[in-house]
Design a protein around this nucleic acid. Structure first.
Lengths: 192, 192
DNA sequence: GTCTATAGAATGATAGAC
DNA sequence: GTCTATCATTCTATAGAC
């Protein structure tokens, strides 16, 4: 399980730090999440923490990548369309438990508009993978689509991101239920 | 046209400032839009500008309100559903011309999650009005809805906000065309 | 690898003169 | 109402010792 070669220990420690940082951000929120705060939480000095990540922006980008990994978002989606839908909805439902991560994600999504931002590539890649998964899932439904699959995928992604903004503003919004309703409607599309 | 009573001049000047600030933010972007930068652009000192708005957060909230006003978003939507749809799509199309405002909107949407933030009420109200308009428009279609109108309205709003994030990240994304496709699909819902 | 200390900068807000 | 000047924070990044 342990990695070989140079940096093996460094990599392991880095992962350990990320795991803890993830929990902190999830609970305490990104609000004013300075490098100092994260450093305290993981038991390092500010400089000690930056030693592993180089900059604040890279640190928070790494946190988002780690989150995707833990959410199994890097795995292939289930082959059955209903299972894929359920998995997607469950990830969204779980997001309700980690407001700080939703806030971090949404905030970086805006800041990463700058091509120079370390998270720029992350968001581009993540969006592409997500939409490809959605397109593949829709293809398995073999239903006459009212819209091009790529367009539908973009809309589903947009709905997921937009629901997060609504939920951050008003936590009574049920992101998962709303998304499930949308996906069910899409699956029945053209079959009233 | 001119207002009477106390503050009349102050209000007018405030509006004038907002109009210019709006143009600046629209073009130059919100990136690093400090109070100082806006102040320079409108021909005031930093302190002079804050005299009218009290704080940075209130200034930027006022800019968003002014934008809605200029976009006629405070007006009632056209009674014909197709006209309402077209008006909505046109606002979105226009947004492509003002990236800085889209960035400002998206950024404040996250920060306003905090109930103490001056823009919190703005986003709550704006969302409610928008969704009510969508619900009212959908009702005029008199079609059997696959989803509760409130849910659909939430999804349309979410899609609009989410598409902005995608577009900020990748300006080749066509927000207006995607939204139009969604709205057309909704209008045909249950009528393949 | 980790810490202490500090540089260095940016910015929002306020006091007070005019 | 507007400006100048200044305060007061906050935070990232780096240098250098251990």
């Amino acid at each position: 399980m342990s990695q070989r070669g140079p940096y093996a220990k460094g990599v392991a420690k880095r992962e350990e730090i990320l795991g803890r940082a993830l929990e902190i951000v999830a609970r305490q929120g990104y609000r004013g999440a300075s490098v100092q705060v994260i450093a305290d939480a993981v038991g390092l000095s500010q400089a000690g923490l930056l030693h592993y990540f180089g900059s604040k922006e890279e640190l928070f980008t790494a946190i988002l990548r780690k989150r995707d990994e833990l959410d199994h978002l890097s795995r292939a989606a289930p082959s059955d369309p209903r299972d894929a839908r359920d998995a997607f909805v469950q990830v969204i439902a779980h997001n309700s438990e980690v407001p700080g991560l939703v806030e971090l994600f949404s905030r970086l999504a805006v800041e990463a508009a700058d091509p120079e931002h370390p998270a720029h590539a992350y968001f581009l890649e993540r969006g592409e993978v997500l939409r490809e998964t959605i397109v593949a899932t829709l293809a398995q439904l073999r239903r006459p689509p009212a819209l091009p699959p790529e367009t539908l995928a973009r809309i589903v992604q947009a709905a997921a991101d937009g629901l997060q903004l609504q939920w951050l503003l008003d936590p009574t919004v049920d992101m998962a239920a709303t998304m499930e309703a949308l996906l069910n409607a899409l699956a029945q599309e053209g079959h009233p």
